[in-house]
Structure formats: C-alpha cells, structure tokens
Amino acid sequence: MLEARLPQGAVLKKIVDAIKEIVSDANFDCTDSGITLQAMDSSHVALVSLLLTSEAFDPYRCDRNLTLGINIKTLVQILKCSGNDDVITLRAEEPADTLALVFEPPSLERISEYEMKLMDIDNERLEIPDTAYHAEITMAASEFQRICRDMQTLSESVTIEATKEGVKFSAEGELGSGSVTLKQGGSIDSSAETTTIELVQPTTQTFSVKYLVNFSKSTSLAGQVRLAMTAPLPMLVEYKISDCGHLRFFLAPKIDD
C-alpha cells in the first residue's frame, strides 16, 4: 500500500495547478523512493516530468510499486477542498482503483477525507536522454513568468537568445515587436534574482509562448527557474521543489528553416 503524508500540502496543489493545462490524465508512479509522473500534452509538443522523492513526505510508505491513474481536473477539484496550510495524506491500496486524500489543518481540529476514482491510463513510458546543453540559464522564476506574459501580448512565439553577455527574449507580431534582455549577474551575488548563464556556445531557439506561460505557473514552487537549450532539441524548463524533487517541462522548439 501507499501512505504518503505531505506536511506542505500546498506543494501538491501548486504542482497540479501548474500541469493542469498541459495534461488531462496522468499516471502517478509510486515506488519506495518516491512519486514520479511523466506525461505529454495531446499535441506532443510538451512533456511534464515530476519527481517528488520520499523525503518530501513524512512519513512515506510504499511497499510495492503502484500506478495511480489520475484525471488531473478531478484532482484539482478535490484539492480545492484543502486549505493552503493543510497537511495532505495520500493513501492507496492494491489494486489501486481509488485514491484517498486526507486534509488536516495545523490546528488538527478538522479532518476531511476524500476518495477519488482512479483510471486505467495507457501511457507509454519514455526515456529522457541525458543532454549536454549548449546554454543553461538560471534566473528568477518570477522574472521568467513576467517576461513570458509580456511577450505573449505581442506574439504567439518567443525567441530566446543566450550569449555570454546575457539572455534576450524577443517577440515579433503584427502589432509590433518587443524584447527583454537580462544581463548575466555577478558571481558573488547569488540571490534568487541573479541571472547566470553557462554557455558552451551561443544558442537561439524559438518557442510557442503559450506553453511557456503555462510552465511559469510553477513560479510559486521555486525562487529560480533553469532553462537549458541545445538547438534543435527540446528546451528543458526546470523548477526545483526544495531538496525533494523537481518539476521539469520539455518543449519542442519551432522548426527553424
């Protein structure tokens, strides 16, 4: 059986909110080491890869590997019944045809219990190859969100250009064009606001901005976001979940002629 108590239940709410526009149904794979999820959007443009290690939970127990087929919209609805400070406990037995969710506020004066039906999701398991990225940008997650939203007002595409001086986001639409350039910050100041660029070679790629805006809904999970690019491969957009996992998105670029 699975019994996973998440002291910071809000983390689960944030994760589910961040992926709900991208995936409708997904398998949550539970093993002794934690919970993972991997799912592509229906148009095969974006892939979500979640890792929540057992350290995220206290306690965590998973005797045997379990796959929980979850309708994300249903989970969003049920999680709306929890408070932001609630401890969330997930419980499932074998065979996993339902998932029990228990919400407890810090006061412990209220316990709410929900049970959701699980689905049988036929999902191909994909292996994400290790990629040597040509450009890796670490920047404030809130800044990335703002830039994506700003670029979306002009165009459905955004071009990201990484050089050793900085990273430039630009958009060109029928109404006009715009760009935001972030300069590489000093190495001494390593606050969440600092932009750092690790460059093997200057890299430019163009992406659908609508997906990036969706990814950036993960902003509340982490202070920083990591963008990793190697043309013409998919870009990696990564949010770390404290020291106990990550939420990664892979996005296929626009095809360069």
Binding site: H44, P234, A252
Partner: peptide
C-alpha cells in the same frame, strides 16, 4: 510563422 516541432522521436519509448 515557423511551424511547431514535436517531441516524437526525441524521447525513446521504453
């Protein structure tokens, strides 16, 4: 407008 690429072929099915 540049066409949108897809992820197929990049990730191996295991």
């Amino acid at each position: 407008v540049a066409p949108q690429g897809r992820l197929d072929g990049f990730f191996k099915v295991t």
